[in-house]
C-alpha cells in the first residue's frame, strides 16, 4: 500500500493542530511565531500533495508552495524585527505584557 493523499492531509492536519496549540498557549512571542511557521508548513504539505495527486499535468500546487515560502520568509523577517523593536521598548517578549489595546 502506497501512502495516499489522505495520509498527507492527515499529517498536515496534525501539524496544523500543533501549530494552533503553540499559537494559543505560548507566552513567548518568538515561540508563537515558530508555531505560525509550523502551520504554514502544514499548508505547504497540502499544496505539494495536491500537486501530485489531484492535478499533476500542471504542478500549480508547487508554485503556490513556493510563494507561501517567500511570503513566510518575509513575514519572519518583519515579525522578528518587530519583536526586537518591541523588546527595546518594554524589555520583554512576553505576550501578556502587551495589552494596551483593551477595553
Amino acid at each position: 500500500m502506497m501512502p495516499g493523499l489522505s495520509h498527507y492531509l492527515l499529517l498536515a492536519a496534525g501539524l496544523f493542530g500543533i501549530g494552533v496549540y503553540g499559537v494559543l498557549s505560548r507566552r513567548n512571542v518568538i515561540a508563537v511565531l515558530m508555531s505560525v511557521e509550523l502551520m504554514l508548513n502544514a499548508v505547504n504539505i497540502n499544496f505539494i500533495a495536491a500537486a501530485k495527486f489531484v492535478n499533476h499535468e500542471q504542478i500549480v500546487g508547487q508554485v503556490f508552495a513556493l510563494f507561501v515560502i517567500v511570503v513566510a520568509a518575509a513575514e519572519v523577517a518583519v515579525g522578528l524585527a518587530l519583536i526586537i523593536a518591541m523588546y527595546r521598548h518594554k524589555k520583554s517578549v512576553n505576550l501578556n505584557d502587551f495589552n494596551l489595546l483593551k477595553w
Partner: peptide, 17 residues
C-alpha cells in the same frame, strides 16, 4: 461584551479559531 476585548492577542486568536 467589552470585557472580552482584553488586549491579549491570544484571546483574539482563541475567538478566531
Amino acid at each position: 461584551l467589552r470585557y472580552t476585548e482584553d488586549g491579549q492577542v491570544q484571546s483574539y486568536a482563541l475567538y478566531m479559531f
